[in-house]
């Protein structure tokens, strides 16, 4: 038996919004420790890794490890049927071929349940080692979304250059070029507005704007985003999900052929 309850549907809606542009389907691996989803986008250029910790759910029961392959488009449709302040309970029997989403209104007067067929997904699971990155940038997530949107007008790709002074985002194409420089915040009054750079070595990497823009769909989940970079390895774009866990996007850099 698997059962996980959240007092508020909003967070689950935001999580689905953050992944559904990149992934059509995904396997939710459920265990005692929580729920994990790892999947590559269709073109295998980026990887999404979602972790939700069991102790942050309002109720969590997982008698045996369970892998539930879900169509994320269908899941998003079902979650649209929940009001933001509804309690959401996700339920599945062991070895079941369906999962049930139950929504309960705050006054307990409306209860709805939606059953969804599970899928057998043959997805490659990747081991992601803990890595020390040359540069780690923390910045307001809205600012990052804005920069990705603005620079995508100029080019398919964006160069991110990080030094200890700051981080520079650049794009150039037929229309012209754009550069946005952010200096490290000198006086941190409000932590969520700060730009903080931890640098071991300066890094310059190029990435596809299309994917960066897809990652910024997670902006409503967290005020801050963390970008971790080292030469010639995937960028990690991380959004924390309050005390519930995090969503990390990995993106392969563009390299000279």
């Amino acid at each position: 038996m698997f059962e996980a309850r959240l007092m508020n549907a909003t967070i689950l809606k935001k999580i689905l919004d953050a992944v559904k542009d990149l992934l059509n389907e995904g396997t939710f691996d459920c265990s005692d420790s929580g729920i994990q989803l790892q999947a590559m986008d269709n073109s295998h250029v980026s990887l999404v890794s979602l972790t939700l910790r069991s102790d942050s759910f309002d109720k969590f029961r997982c008698d045996r490890n369970l892998s539930m392959g879900m169509n994320l488009g269908t899941m998003a449709k079902i979650l649209k049927c929940a009001n933001n302040d509804d309690t959401v309970t996700i339920k599945a029997q062991d070895n079941a071929d369906t999962v049930t989403f139950m929504f309960e209104s705050q006054n307990h007067e409306k209860v709805s349940d939606y059953e969804m067929k599970l899928m057998n997904l043959d997805q490659e699971h990747l081991g992601i080692p803990d890595t020390d990155y040359s540069c780690v940038v923390r910045m307001p997530s809205m600012e990052f979304a804005r920069i990705c949107r603005d620079l995508a007008q100029f080019s398919e790709s964006m160069v991110i250059c990080c030094t200890k002074e700051g981080v520079k985002f650049s794009a150039s194409g037929d229309l012209g070029s754009a550069n946005v420089k952010l200096a490290q915040t000198s006086n941190v009054d409000k932590e969520e507005e700060a730009v903080i750079i931890e640098m071991q070595e300066p890094v310059t990497l190029t990435f596809a704007c299309r994917y960066l823009n897809a990652f910024t769909k997670a902006t409503p989940l967290c005020n801050q985003v963390q970008l971790s970079m080292s030469a010639d390895v995937p960028l990690v774009v991380e959004y924390r999900i309050s005390d519930l866990g995090h969503i990390r996007y990995y993106l392969a850099p563009k390299i000279e052929e």
């Binding site: 590559m40 295998h44 699971h125 990747l126 080692p129 390895v233 995937p234 850099p253 563009k254």
Partner: peptide, 14 residues
Amino acid sequence: IKNQKGINTYFTAG
């Protein structure tokens, strides 16, 4: 020309 490798080439299976 810049291109990108598959993300799975950076990580090990498992």
